[in-house]
Amino acid sequence: MTGETPAIATSGLSKRYRGGQLAVDGLDLRVPQGSVFGFLGPNGSGKTTTIRMLLGLISPSAGGSELFGEPVDAGHVGTLTRVGALIEGPAHYPYLSGRANLARYDAADRTADPRTRAARIEHALEQVGLSNAAEKKAKAYSLGMKQRLGLACALLQPRDLLILDEPTNGLDPQGMREIRGLITSLASQGTTIFLSSHLLDEIEQVCTDVAIMSRGRLVSEGTVAGLREGLKARLVVTTPDPAEAATVLKEQGGQDVRAEGRRVDCDAHEDLAPDAVCAALVGAGVRVLSFGVERPSLEDAFVALTGEGFDVAE
């Protein structure tokens, strides 16, 4: 993958809205071809603004971006035929059927061949599991069906890049699994996926790379595994005797010992052998209900990096 033109590259990409609010601030992003790239960030952190700039819907106030080495220019078609997108939820003509909606979007793509249109629409409907509801008016669709129709629209042509903003929004658990399966299978065929999601376990399951945004800035970029390794694992004891347990952990050399209710934990560094610690706890008469090492989740990494939960950023 090295040396290849990245699917997405931005340099100093910034957007200041007319109100003076800086939504995206000097973003340098590099999405390698063939990766499944997770794009994370709290609400209002500038994810959607970034996606809209990548797709030429809004023009940056500074910096720029390239898709497959070609500059993106608002109002210019460029490489967009190679890109399928789902942006801030699906949008449809409520008075048209699912199939007619897809036909309209396909007609809008001037490189789409009208002779293969019907077959491509059929294939897209089948991929997202909508074949049986194709003749229904879009206004009669459920939220999950609308989401599937939006995905079908992104899949009308074989794409080199899919930019998907919350693709499993509104889907039931079964639907989420199906869509994740579809994304994984598309990725295995070589499509680069740029996936924005607030579902951290989704990113963890599907993505190879991840970037985290906070207040318009990129706070971390790397592999999912690398990001998690940045955080230390914790040794956790559940016990009715937290005070005694904390003392033992400190004696054993545990750092950053914290006790909360029946849970006592400390950093699990290499010198701290879990079996020895457990034996010491039992030897000191601490009643151990459970004992183990907790690996940090992506969510912990996320909170550690953005310093916030999913509250709206200022």
């Binding site: 030429g56 035929t81 997108a85 942006i87 979007y105 001037r110």
Partner: peptide, 10 residues
């Protein structure tokens, strides 16, 4: 919201 999808089509 269909304007954005028409423009992205492109």
């Amino acid at each position: 919201g269909t304007l954005r999808y028409l423009l992205v089509a492109p």
